[in-house]
Nucleic acid binder design. Structure first.
Length: 599
RNA sequence: GGUCCCGUGGUGUAGCGGCCUAACACGCCUCCCUGUCAAGGAGGAGAUCGGCAGUUCGAAUCUGCUCGGGAUCGCCA
């Protein structure tokens, strides 16, 4: 070993001992006859002093050191002179009085400082990711991610799960997301696809009698990127036989509670996780991934609003539309600029417009509300009584701002849930220390696709319908509820699970409802259906996004921050400059001809 | 594919029609310095302002296109 001690370790108790450390020169403070080096390794910083009194040779050599050089230092741990301690450093009571210095490697001037302080341009960070990852914050995140995975392995192993790898080269399944595809050399014109998830494979493993499988699985989707979406992401993928919905949820709940407690002890987490049905979630929050860290729940006021003289409301109510809204506490004093801005925001989410009713805080109560207390673009069509009634329904108080949207139910929900999150963000209503998990269950199995004019699976085709809804499968698919659920956290989807179908005939019925032909079914799912005829046990499981979990634990918005080598928004790796053209010979071997798009 | 924001020495920013021969901080280089820890002091190097085209007497600054980054809608079973 080049070192016997890590930089971050020495304390006062080590004073007097002879140690050897190795690491990177973090900072150099050269006083001429006395040189200080902050030496950094993964464990932290240690101040090294080069004093010619103890070693002329080491001191001379130390004068040439520069940032990020790699060195090995031997010396004696000494307590610092009184008054020279650094309370900001864990090792700040001591320093290493160097007697020997070995330069293991030099560094050219780094493109940016290895420090958490500086915010460096995203592209530069990725181009020099190996430098970026040296920053303490990034090191911390890498360790956090490892720790999360470690706990998963431990916990699931304890619970009798077996980790099994599934192929990365598998078969393309054109439904769902676009596949990443790999050409076959041996079979001209044929392609593998990278898995979007190991869904069918893990179900096959259940048929194989594994009973409890898990994998930290890489999943690939060739779709546009977002803050929380990368072309490849990692899932905790697991599957269990002979279980019901609750059994699966319990496993995840225990595991995730443990992860939060062990990795982020300061965090507030409510266990057991609140459970709400899909219908309830849509009604209260307008979304299937509600952020439960704050209130501002939605209220339906269609009937009350229709009794007003406002044309918009009357027309919407009579045409079967929905009028809903919520009350924002303390924003009754919003001026024109702010309300205009909110209207614009609502429009960007697809709303025709946004109706606000501002209640002046000088009113003693909602009952005591008078005309002068009310501000609204629809004021002349809204009687004081109607406003009182709406305010009561929404639970608004004087000084609040009520935001109301009218339209189809789907649109109203989309707009309002976006608005709700936006208001919470602007008002900083979410406690950053809180991690609010929740289960949303009883999802409908199918969603009507307006463009394709057909039913599409809400999550995927393998989820089991509830027994009491079997009869609707062909007659009214939209009504069928499945054993299908999501884990949500702080307003984002963390994973999705279901009890799967394990019966060939039932699975075939579902494929039919989605409109697959016999050929498509046997081509894409033949292996699964065949397996089902050989004694498939009832089973269910989940796929849970690891990147998003780690991001939330780390307090980051972008999963890019918790992936060692992520890609930019245009799916490029600036470090390797991937993707890139390949050699003509490679193309030839693969029987591929490139046709560039006409620009 | 659409919309929005950003692009100025190595890094982070300022400048937003002429005071720009581009400013500041950090970093870098040279020298001085025995108690610093974002060390200090003196001096120095480093940028055709992402690229192209245009408007203008004059463009870092305005316009268009384009490239790159980011946010978002579509997309993401």
């Amino acid at each position: 070993m080049y070192k016997d001690t890590n930089c971050g370790e020495p304390r006062e108790s080590a004073a007097g001992s002879q140690i050897t450390v190795a690491g990177w020169v973090h900072r150099r403070r050269d006083h001429g006859n006395l040189i200080f080096i902050d030496l950094r390794d993964r464990s932290g910083l240690l101040q090294v002093v080069f004093n010619p009194k103890y070693s002329e040779k080491a001191h001379d050599l130390a004068g040439s050191l520069r940032s990020e050089w790699v060195v090995q230092v031997t010396g004696k741990v000494v307590t610092r002179l009184p008054g020279a301690e650094n309370p900001d450093l864990p090792t700040g009571m001591v320093e290493l009085s160097a007697t020997d210095l070995v330069i293991l490697n030099r560094s050219v001037t780094p493109p940016f400082e290895v420090s958490d302080e500086v915010e460096v341009d995203a592209n530069t960070r990725l181009k020099y990711r190996f430098m970026d990852l040296r920053r303490p914050r990034m090191q911390e995140i890498l360790k956090l991610r490892h720790e999360v995975i470690h706990i998963m392995w431990d916990y699931l192993t304890d619970k009798g799960f077996t980790q099994i790898e599934t192929p990365i080269l598998i078969k393309s399944t054109p439904e769902g997301a676009r596949d990443y595809v790999v050409p076959s050399r041996v079979h001209p014109g044929n392609f593998y696809a990278l898995p979007q998830s190991p869904q069918q494979l893990k179900q096959l493993l259940m048929v194989s009698g594994v009973e409890r499988y898990f994998q930290i699985a890489r999943c690939f989707r060739d779709e546009d990127l977002r803050t929380d979406r990368q072309p490849e992401h990692t899932q905790l993928d697991f599957e269990m036989s002979f279980v019901h919905q609750d059994d699966v949820m319990t496993i995840v709940e225990e595991l995730y509670t443990r992860i939060v407690k062990e990795t982020s002890p300061d965090t507030e987490i409510s266990a057991p996780f609140p459970r709400l049905t899909y219908a309830e979630s849509m009604e209260r929050f307008g979304t299937d991934k509600p952020d439960l860290r704050f209130g501002m729940e939605l209220t339906t006021i269609t009937e009350t609003a229709a009794t007003s003289d406002a044309q918009v409301f009357q027309a919407m109510a009579s045409s079967g539309g929905s009028i809903r809204g919520f009350s924002v506490p303390g924003c009754g004093d919003y001026g024109r600029r702010q309300t205009d801005n909110l209207t614009e925001f609502a429009k960007s989410s697809g709303a025709q417009g946004l109706v606000f009713i501002a209640l002046d805080e000088s009113a003693a109560s909602i009952d005591a509300l008078e005309n002068d207390h009310i501000r609204s673009p629809l004021k002349k069509f809204l009687s004081v009584d109607v406003v009182k009634k709406i305010a009561t329904e929404m639970g608004a108080e004087p000084g609040d701002l009520m935001l109301i949207v009218a339209g189809t139910e789907k649109l109203v929900n989309t707009v309002l849930s976006n608005l709700r999150n936006e208001m919470a963000k602007r008002l900083e209503m979410a406690d950053p220390k809180q991690i609010a998990f929740a289960w949303v269950y009883d999802f409908p199995l199918f969603e009507w696709d307006e463009e394709l004019k057909k039913y599409e699976p809400a999550h995927h085709v393998f989820s089991s319908p509830k027994a009491e809804h079997m009869d609707y499968l062909e007659t009214n698919p939209g009504k069928v509820i499945g054993f299908l659920w999501d884990l949500v956290c702080n307003g984002s989807e963390m994973g999705s699970g279901s009890i799967r179908i394990h019966d060939k005939d039932l699975q075939t019925r579902l494929f039919n409802i989605i409109g697959y032909t016999e050929d498509q079914i046997s081509d894409r799912f033949g292996q699964l259906l065949t397996a089902f005829t050989y004694g498939a046990p009832p089973h269910g499981g989940m796929g849970l996004g690891l990147d998003r979990l780690v991001a939330i634990l780390a307090g980051e918005d972008a999963i890019r921050e918790v992936i060692a080598f992520p890609k930019t928004q245009s799916a490029v790796d600036p470090l390797f400059e991937a993707p890139s053209p390949i050699e003509d010979q490679q193309l030839e071997d693969l029987h591929i001809r490139v046709v560039m798009p006409k620009s």
